[in-house]
Each structure stands twice: as C-alpha cells, then as structure tokens.
Simulated assay, not measured.
Amino acid sequence: MKIAAVQLTSTADTATNLALASERIREAAAQGAQLIVLPEATSQNFGSGRLDGQAQELDGDFATTLQALAKELGVTVVVGMFRPADTVEREGKKINRVFNTALIVGPDVRRGYDKIHTYDAFNYRESDTVVPGTQLVTFSVGDLTVGVSTCYDIRFPEQFKALARSGADIVVVPTSWADGAGKLEQWRLLTAARALDSTSYIVAAGQARPGGSAEAGKESGPTGIGHSVIVAPDGKRLVEAGYEEEIIYAEVDGDTVREIRKAIPVLKN
C-alpha cells in the first residue's frame, strides 16, 4: 500500500487551511496514495491565538468536507484539528478548552483520536488549553491496521507498544514539532525508536518550518520543524522531508511487519 505524509504550513484561518489540505490530499491521491497523513494543527496553527474560536465537532464543516473528499478519491486521511472540550475557571478567568484531535476520514469512517499526552514541556503548557484524551484508537485501511498518536505522544513508548499489541501495523503521527537546539536530533531518534519499540511502520507528518531552511535550528515554539518521515519496523528511515513544504511517499506491507516481528519479537518478549 502506498502512503503519503503531507508537510505543509497551516495558518490562523480554518477555511484557508481546509482549502490547502484539500489541495494536498488531491495531489497525494493522484500519486496513488491510499493513506494520507497531514500534520497536527492543520485546521489552525499553533501560535495564532485562541484555539476555541475555530474548534469544531466531527460533524462540522472541516471534518465533513474532508470526509466527502476522501470518499470521492477513495482514500483514508488523518489530519490534525481541534474540537470543543470544556470550560474551566482559572484565576477568575473562564477558559474554553479543546481536544487536540487527529481526524480520521475515509469513504466509510469519520472519527477522531484525542491526543493523550499534552505538551507540558520546554516551558510550554498545552494542558492549560487542551484536555488530554484517554482512549487508544486504531482503524483499518485495506488489510492493514493503523494506530494513531500525535506529536508529543512519540516520547511515550508504552502507547506505541499498546497500539501494536492491539494489531497496529502502522502508527501515524500528525505533528507540529518545535525547532531549537537538539530538537531535530531528538525527533529523528524518537521516530526510529518508536518503530523499533513497536516493530511498526511510523508515518509522521509534520508542519513545515516557518521561514524554511533559513530559520533552521532557531527556537520556534510548537510551530513546526519539517522533517516528516516514514520509518520501517526495523527503524530504517525510508524517506524523510526537509524544512520546506512537500509530500513524501513510501510503500508499506503487512508481510514486512510480520517478518520483522518474527525476527525481533520484542512485543512477545
């Protein structure tokens, strides 16, 4: 099966981002991709203001439009968005929190995975405005099972092993990874390590680096470092993007997963 990881730069406006995502999905489908993964925060980029103003449920325009497109093209799409969650009061202020959701749409599916591990690290507190999810999610594309995680989840190997034990051959990772000192090295290590931990394909689609390679290595906040990657179950990077917007592709198959799990039975051991 051919899979695609779409690396783009989303904006502050959901309608603009929906049009961009639709264009990239059409491009990937035209190249034969059956599973197409887009970044975290595709519906609204981080650093552009409050997330609750454009948050939508799964029956909103963002999700239903993308499902209609997936049905038209005969593909399955995973893409980052935000959904309304709850309202809390903090220091006399009411905060409308959201779920950081990976939307899954296909001809016969529209559901979401809510990011379990909120990014409370490096002086950033995602949990102030985002409610963590509690449920693992898998779905099927053809004869392959796909697990879902999001960005900071990649630092937690237990989640990836649990998805693999639930049958996942592939784990997709919509991402908006921060740039800065050591961050690219960490990203490369973590994506390879999670493939090895779970003996699964890792398909990580990230936000492109704002400003491109000219800004590489500078502190960015959680707005993207690029370097989307598809990793084989043995930890080999099959294809990796750079800092700019692009789409990367790879062929995956269940036989490879089964062969590697037989040779390296870490999930059983």
Rank of each mutant, 00 (worst) to 15 (best):
V173H: 08
I95L: 10
A19P: 13
P39V: 02
Q67A: 06
N100W: 01
S198I: 07
V146M: 04
A15C: 11
E246N: 06
E158P: 12
A29V: 03
V131G: 11
H227K: 06
R258W: 04
D13N: 14
I95E: 04
V141F: 03
R83Q: 13
V172S: 11
A19N: 06
Q159W: 03
D179G: 14
K115E: 04
I247W: 05
I25F: 00
V172M: 09
D153L: 03
S176Q: 15
G224S: 01
D61N: 08
M1I: 08
G133C: 01
G254T: 13
L163P: 10
L196D: 04
S22E: 04
A55V: 13
L190T: 00
D108N: 14
A214K: 15
A205M: 02
W177I: 15
A70K: 04
S200I: 07
R209T: 01
A241Y: 01
A29S: 05
Y249W: 06
R24F: 05
G167L: 00
K115H: 08
I202Q: 03
H117V: 10
G112I: 02
S48N: 04
E185A: 15
V146R: 05
V171S: 14
A4G: 04
G47K: 00
G242K: 02
I264H: 12
F62C: 03
A12V: 04
P39T: 09
T14Y: 15
S166I: 12
N269S: 13
A33S: 03
Q207I: 15
G226P: 06
V130F: 00
V109W: 02
P222N: 08
E259W: 11
D234F: 11
E215M: 14
D120Y: 10
G211F: 00
P222Y: 02
G80E: 08
V252D: 12
R24I: 01
C151R: 01
I116W: 05
G32E: 10
G212K: 07
Q44W: 11
L51H: 07
L136W: 11
E215A: 14
Q135N: 10
A214I: 09
D13M: 09
D128P: 12
L66E: 09
E91W: 09
S220E: 03
N17G: 11
A162W: 11
L18R: 11
T256R: 04
S127D: 10
I170W: 09
P174D: 01
Y201S: 00
Q159G: 10
T256K: 02
M1Q: 02
S176H: 13
A164N: 09
L189C: 05
Q34Y: 07
L163S: 14
Y249V: 12
T42L: 10
Y119H: 12
S140L: 06
F160L: 03
